[in-house]
C-alpha cells in the first residue's frame, strides 16, 4: 500500500492523524498533513483507508 497527501488541497483538519497517527502528522506551523509512513504495513491498511475516507478535502490517495 502506498499513501500520498495533496498538500495544496489539504485543509489542515487533522482527521487523518486521528485515524492513523503513526502514518500521518500535521506540520506545527500550518497544520498541513504530512505522511510519516508512505508505505504502511498491511496491519495499518484499514486505518489508512479510514483516514482517506474521513479527510474533508479528500486529499489522501491510497494505492493498494
Amino acid at each position: 500500500m502506498k499513501v500520498t497527501v495533496d498538500q495544496d488541497t489539504c485543509v489542515a483538519s487533522g482527521q487523518c492523524v486521528m485515524a492513523a497517527e503513526d502514518v500521518f502528522d500535521q506540520r506545527d506551523e500550518d497544520g498541513i498533513a504530512v505522511v510519516l509512513e508512505p508505505e504502511p504495513s498491511p496491519e495499518r491498511a484499514a486505518d489508512v483507508r479510514q483516514a482517506a475516507a474521513v479527510c474533508p478535502a479528500l486529499a489522501i490517495a491510497v494505492q493498494e
Binding site: 489542515a12 483538519s13 487533522g14 492523524v17 500535521q26 506540520r27 500550518d30 497544520g31
Partner: peptide, 10 residues
Amino acid sequence: LGWRMPKQAR
C-alpha cells in the same frame, strides 16, 4: 478555537 494553529487546536 484555533486561530492559525490547526495542529495545536486539534
